[in-house]
């Protein structure tokens, strides 16, 4: 080990300049995002249908996709869901109350359409279901109401 390899052990003026420069880097994303507003892409989502706890259908929600329909036959009664670029919804249900159909389209991760008579749950999930990642941004843990 040679003498000129010794580090300075005191905080100097050049350190201060470096730190200020580094701190400025943090502002860049805001500047860039500000210019690219609209082109911003949120995390990808999928629609998942479970009936009586079993997953029966899964469909990625993509911009500009064609509608995808899925029909389930539940003891002779028909339950139809549709996924398209705006989200997913229950299109038709032979259940008595039709609450599921009235719920309409869901599009955000965590939202659900529930059909109690058929034990069916249509939900939106993040495509990469990593909670540590979805914590950042507008991810929510539960919905009241």
């Amino acid at each position: 080990m040679t003498e000129n390899d010794r580090p300075g052990l005191r905080f100097g003026f050049r350190d201060l300049v470096l730190i200020i420069a580094l701190a400025m880097i943090g502002v860049i994303p805001f500047a860039v995002m500000h210019n690219m507003r609209g082109a911003e892409k949120s995390a990808r989502t999928v629609a998942v249908l479970t009936i009586a706890g079993d997953e029966v259908w899964r469909c990625a929600i993509d911009d500009g996709m064609d509608p995808v329909e899925y029909s389930a036959d539940i003891d002779g009664e028909i339950f139809t869901v549709i996924a398209d670029s705006t989200g997913a919804r229950v299109n038709h249900s032979d259940c008595p109350d039709k609450i599921c159909v009235e719920t309409g389209t869901i599009s955000k991760a965590g939202q659900t359409v529930v059909c109690v008579p058929f034990r069916a749950v249509l939900r939106i999930e993040y495509a990469d279901d990593d909670p540590e990642l979805t914590d950042v941004g507008d991810a929510i843990d539960a919905i009241s109401g």
């Binding site: 860049i28 805001f30 911003e40 892409k41 941004g137």
Partner: peptide, 23 residues
Amino acid sequence: AGAFLTGSARLFLYLPFLLWASI
């Protein structure tokens, strides 16, 4: 790495907080 894994550039908006705390 986070932005790459999620495919979401929005994560970079969080950079300043992490960056300044790290410094």
